[in-house]
Design a binder for these strands. Structure first.
Length: 267
DNA sequence: ATGCCTAACTAAGTTAGA
């Protein structure tokens, strides 16, 4: 049997799907991810650029929101089959931050975890509460016989090795012990942090803020994560960050972050 | 302790991101 090309699954906080449509299309054309999770669409449902994305060869589902938030799942050459819209556990939560679908043989959870700044305060409380709901929900997926990937902007810098210099970020919601403990609790369920797994001790960043020439100086943070359940983890082949997208004109402050997966149990 | 830079909404100034 001829070897099948590995599956490529990516997550990209696009920071405005309309503003960044040209970058998105260039990225899809060049990198051809089989599955792409997008966050921060910053657009209501009716403003999602369905046609351009279809013309690029992708089926898509999305959960938009005016001005902020918004998540989407794109699947190359097929329509994603939606399995969940919104995180369970709080019927009063109206923010568009979780979407889930079956695509290319995977269950794909696309998440945009709350930022939580400023902390302390109600936004930080919301972040932690959302995180707790997510941990509870993830518990039901970790031992699924189906391969599951939870991909998105977690808004957590897991350790001090995941940031250029933690000093000036110490009081930021992304580095708080409460945020980090929850990320560690999630991994302790048995999830594989695929970027860290693949890079070992090597530094890898997925976000560079717009301030103080942080991109030019490679002063980055690793906050976009792809977590694999037990059924999927053995299939991890490679991981990386498409940094060239961050270098485009008028970029998002995040870069697309991806993994490749083998097809069989042995890869 | 705060701004730095950028975007949405809307029309100059606020809110939010991280």
């Amino acid at each position: 049997m001829p070897a099948r090309k590995p599956l490529k699954v990516a997550t990209f906080n696009i920071n405005g799907v309309r503003t960044r449509l040209a970058s998105l299309l260039a990225w899809l054309e060049r990198e051809k991810p089989d599955v792409a999770c997008l966050q921060e669409l910053k657009a209501p449902d009716e403003a999602f650029p369905t046609e351009a994305i279809r013309d690029a060869g992708y089926g898509a589902i999305w959960h938009g929101q005016r001005s902020w938030n918004g998540v989407a799942i794109l699947a190359r050459g097929m329509e994603p089959l939606e399995s969940r819209r919104g995180l369970p556990g709080d019927s009063g939560d109206t923010q568009s931050r979780y979407l889930e679908a079956a695509a290319h043989g995977l269950i794909v959870g696309c998440l945009y975890l709350p930022n939580g700044n400023p902390q302390p305060g109600p936004k930080f409380d919301y972040k932690l509460a959302w995180f707790d709901r997510f941990i509870e929900y993830a518990q039901g997926l970790i031992d699924s016989e189906h391969p599951v990937v939870l991909a998105g902007d977690y808004n957590v810098v897991p350790t001090d090795e995941d940031i250029y210099n933690p000093r000036s970020w110490r009081k930021d919601a992304l580095l708080q012990p409460e945020s980090r403990e929850r990320y560690a609790d999630l991994l302790a369920q048995g999830w594989t942090d695929s970027l860290r797994q693949q890079f070992g001790e090597e530094r890898v960043y997925t976000f560079w803020d717009y301030f103080r020439q942080h991109w030019e100086r490679n002063s980055g943070l690793r906050i976009d994560h792809l977590l694999l359940n037990r059924a999927l983890a053995p299939r991890l082949k490679d991981a990386g960050v498409d940094r060239w997208v961050r270098a485009l004109p008028h970029p998002s402050d995040h870069a697309p972050t991806w993994i490749t997966l083998g097809h069989g149990k042995a890869g």
